[in-house]
Amino acid sequence: MGLLALLLLALAGWLIWTGRLQKMTAKDGLALGIALVGAVMAAKGKPLIGALPIIGSALFFALQNSKGKARREAVGRPPGDVGEARALLGLPADADAQAIRAAHRRLIATVHPDRGGTQALASKINAARDLLLDEANRAGDKRA
């Protein structure tokens, strides 16, 4: 169990060193702290008492990971309707093709994968632009 305590301390050090600790929520930090307390208790010769916080924290992080996967999959999904696409690009209902392209350029410049963004979010923004441009072209055909 002493080795487990050292591994958890090394994990905490790695989280601090890589900057991932700054991205953690308060609940994540609390669960990590509880796991560290459990590891210290186990290292001091109380493995049954120390195992409970470690198992609880492991379950918490397993649940968080499954929720995170569902969120990441939802981000990659293209917008379903015009309203969702407008909300994503931050456009009013009467935006024309030029405004759509300008909003797309402005947003994609901040979330492009080359700038540290994700491919899934860039794809969703591109799909929103395409959907809105198609809608604007159809609306333009009806007006003419």
Score class of each variant (00 low, 15 high):
73 E>N: 11
124 K>L: 12
71 R>D: 03
18 T>G: 04
98 Q>M: 14
15 L>F: 02
11 L>W: 04
10 A>T: 10
86 R>I: 12
121 L>S: 06
69 K>W: 09
10 A>I: 12
126 N>R: 14
35 A>V: 07
64 Q>G: 04
20 R>C: 01
112 H>S: 10
2 G>A: 10
39 A>Q: 02
60 F>I: 08
63 L>M: 10
40 V>I: 06
24 M>A: 00
57 S>V: 09
107 L>K: 12
57 S>I: 10
26 A>T: 15
44 K>C: 09
122 A>Y: 06
111 V>R: 10
40 V>F: 00
94 D>W: 04
103 A>L: 12
19 G>Q: 01
5 A>F: 00
53 P>K: 08
85 A>G: 12
47 P>Y: 02
84 E>Y: 08
129 R>C: 05
68 G>C: 05
117 G>S: 09
46 K>C: 08
15 L>G: 01
40 V>P: 01
34 I>Y: 11
125 I>D: 13
20 R>T: 00
5 A>L: 00
92 P>T: 03
53 P>E: 14
14 W>L: 15
48 L>A: 13
53 P>D: 14
31 A>P: 03
32 L>P: 02
121 L>K: 03
58 A>T: 13
86 R>G: 13
55 I>S: 06
127 A>L: 13
43 A>I: 01
62 A>E: 03
102 A>M: 15
14 W>G: 07
61 F>T: 02
127 A>S: 12
29 G>V: 09
22 Q>K: 07
103 A>I: 07
119 Q>R: 10
111 V>E: 15
9 L>M: 07
86 R>H: 13
